[in-house]
Write a protein that binds this DNA or RNA. Structure first.
Length: 240
DNA sequence: TCATTAAATTGTT
DNA sequence: AACAATTTAATGA
């Protein structure tokens, strides 16, 4: 079985390129950056590796530099519920970090990923000293609230095409996941796992969305042409 | 840098 | 779930 907390194993300081990709980095003042940099670590997570687990104490605030993670929770009955996919640029866990509580969910890598971690003490220091950082966190919390609400809606959607469309819209969220850009690197198998459908059905749904001009299916990823269409349009539910 | 081979991903049944 | 076709990544000259 996969080992947990990979970040604690193969960790290293972030490269200049990795730092530039961190969404809250640019707004920081020089002395704040200095502080943050000293507390930043990155590590590789292999598929199946846990970045954090339910009940573990919080030591880091995590962000996705590269790759793809999934946030899930194990139900009392044993079934697993997936809340969200976490593409590059996504930072998560601020809620539990703020309260210094144990994690309430599991986050594991769907594929080989690079994960960054900011130590909890420095997170709090930035919260106490940086207005820009506060603004980022506040914005982040607000956006994520909206995402959880839409996650519940997505769960109720029965039509697979619409389901896939909404899930994709969530993954392409420009505020929460600024690292994604035009093309989301995700395989159809990974998306199927995330959405809870068979790869076969996801493939079919993607083809439909492609045909409608909302996305373009590419090898190993997807290009979004019309985010608004994914988010809101009613993909005319087939009428019998 | 190019050609060859292996691995990953996709499109279909 | 299994298969074939296609694309990418890795290897070595």
């Amino acid at each position: 079985m996969s080992q947990d907390l990979t970040l604690h194993q193969r960790r290293r300081p972030p490269t200049a390129e990795e730092i530039e990709g961190i969404p809250w980095w640019a707004p920081l003042q020089p002395h704040e950056r200095e502080r943050a940099l000293a507390a930043l670590l990155v590590g590789d997570a292999l598929p199946g590796d846990y970045v954090c687990r339910v009940g573990r104490p919080v030591t880091y605030w995590f962000g996705v530099v590269e790759g793809l993670l999934k946030m899930s929770n194990d139900n009392a009955e044993g079934s697993t519920m997936t809340f969200a996919g976490l593409p590059p640029g996504g930072w998560f866990g601020e809620g539990t970090v703020v309260k210094r509580e144990p994690y309430r969910y599991n986050v594991q890598a769907l594929r080989k990923s690079v994960v960054a971690g900011l130590h909890i003490d420095t997170f709090h220091w930035l919260l106490d000293h940086s207005i820009a950082f506060n603004r980022f966190v506040m914005h982040q919390l607000n956006e994520r609230l909206g995402q959880f609400i839409s996650a519940r809606e997505i769960d109720r959607i029965t039509n697979p095409d619409v389901r896939v469309a909404r899930s994709l819209a969530a993954l392409f969220h420009p505020v929460l996941y600024p690292g994604v850009g035009d093309v989301l690197r995700i395989t159809q198998q990974e998306l199927a796992y995330l959405v809870g459908l068979s790869r076969q059905r996801v493939n079919e749904a993607l083809a439909a969305l492609d045909a409608q001009g909302a996305i373009r299916v590419e090898y190993g990823g997807l290009r979004v042409l019309d985010l608004e269409a994914l988010r809101s349009r009613d993909f005319q539910v087939k009428k019998a």
